[in-house]
Design a protein around this nucleic acid. Structure first.
Lengths: 151, 151
DNA sequence: ACCTATGGTAGGCATCTGCTTATCGTAAGC
DNA sequence: GCTTACGATAAGCAGATGCCTACCATAGGT
């Protein structure tokens, strides 16, 4: 790359990451459809990952969803027996969310199918890059969005 | 029940990358707004990066846009004197696209403002991770989407 | 010359997304 | 007890997006 007047010869992070994300999502969709899950439903299963309890608003915040929009998703998952939504005895406004055993199985099945595909992709990378990539990704993903946007 | 049937204890790539991308885009928006650019307009400026000529359909493919949807964006950019859209003497159907000097300046200004923010983020990473991250990212971003999705 | 493919453009549709408003029951502070 | 805040829910709006159809001018192969 020759004519780069800017600091380094790399494109914007977002310009690389967003299309990558799009492609990864596209790769997941067939897997999700096979299991009859929509993307947001899968995000919910991941968001409830083994952790004991929650409240719907907190779940929504965690997975970056709108609290009014996941209601239908939760309804569907509950109907299908993948999650439990029990009233919280301590706060009768709230519904405690948890995965059922079936939900856990579903999550594991889908996740391992997805990660299997991803491994094929990561296998293209040299060992050190792959390592740094995953480390950095986990570090950045752990940051609250505000730290990334409005530092 | 084995909690993690898969190799490592990492979340899905997409589950980390997509939110990261969202946050990075959110970080870019204020910068873009300051310069009066919409996201797709910026994508076009980046897509024309110094390269001499093109055709609108190819541009659209390159930046992952719909060819019928960038027309308005191109109209706008041309009106503002940021890009040139000349008929190709060799193929009178096509319009050769290029950045004007003003377009180049705009692109550079926005890009450096954006990358400056990104540097602050990358500074949080240990040197080796940062390196591997950027290497891997560039390698993956260079792959055609089909190689990522339907390996 | 003819047929087929491609580039640019317009128009439209179905969907998703972020956001807002309103309602209701309940918690918690005063 | 009253007021304010919060959780769950319903309903809806405005904008963006992917995708499709149609149309015309032109290229390119035969």
């Amino acid at each position: 790359m020759a004519g780069n007047t800017t600091s380094e010869g790399r494109p914007d992070l977002a310009a690389m990451i967003v299309p990558l994300g799009r492609a990864l999502v596209a790769a997941e969709l067939p897997v999700l459809r096979e299991h009859g899950l929509a993307m947001w439903a899968y995000a919910v299963l991941l968001g409830l990952d083994d952790e004991p309890v929650r409240t719907q608003a907190a779940l929504a915040r965690d997975i970056g969803a709108d609290k009014t929009r996941i209601i239908g998703v939760l309804d569907d998952l509950a109907e299908r027996g993948l999650i439990r939504r029990q009233p919280d005895p301590a706060d009768r406004r709230a519904r405690v969310l948890s995965l059922t055993p079936a939900g856990r199985r579903m999550r594991d099945a889908v996740r391992s199918a997805i990660q299997q595909r991803e491994e094929r992709l990561l296998a293209r990378l040299p060992e050190e890059d792959r390592r740094g990539f995953l480390n950095a990704l986990q570090a950045l993903a752990a940051l609250p969005p505000s730290e990334i946007s409005g530092d």
